[in-house]
Design a protein around this nucleic acid. Sequence first.
DNA 1: GCCAACGTTGGC
DNA 2: GCCAACGTTGGC
Length: 152
Amino acid sequence: MSYWLMKSEPDEISIDDALATPNLPWFGVRNYQARNFMRDGMQVGDGVLFYHSSCPEPGIAGVAEVVSTAYPDDTQFDPKSKYYDPKATQENPRWMMVDVRALRKTRLLSLQELRTVDALADMVVLKKGSRLSITPVTAAEWKTVMKLLDKK
DNA sequence: GCCAACGTTGGC
DNA sequence: GCCAACGTTGGC
């Protein structure tokens, strides 16, 4: 059982959109490290912090869980998709994704607030220059975030 | 829109 | 295998 933080642009898919989609395929990841986390690290039942990025108020907006292991992301084969990858083939898919189920919308735990929490100082997503859309979260960090989400 | 901090590409 | 040039992410 592991924990993750997954970024989504709310303009594309918000926590509300995710709640309306029982099994949300996490398509469009085009970064090897993020792909490897999904392919090699994620298991069904893993906890996910649903993070809104590239928006007026970036931060954790909900909680989700992983509901499938990794399988090929079909958008890589579609020339019309903005996620099309001409170097990917059906025989040799390059990009993988998992399905995610949103469990609940939470209060917005903003990036600003996250940065004030000592217990979260080492969170990968808070590291300077971190642009990874999928990052691991430790059990201790998860616990801390759950407590913070219940506050207020 | 700016730009720091990456990641990727491709010539050599 | 190096590394300059280029592309992307994402907070501000």
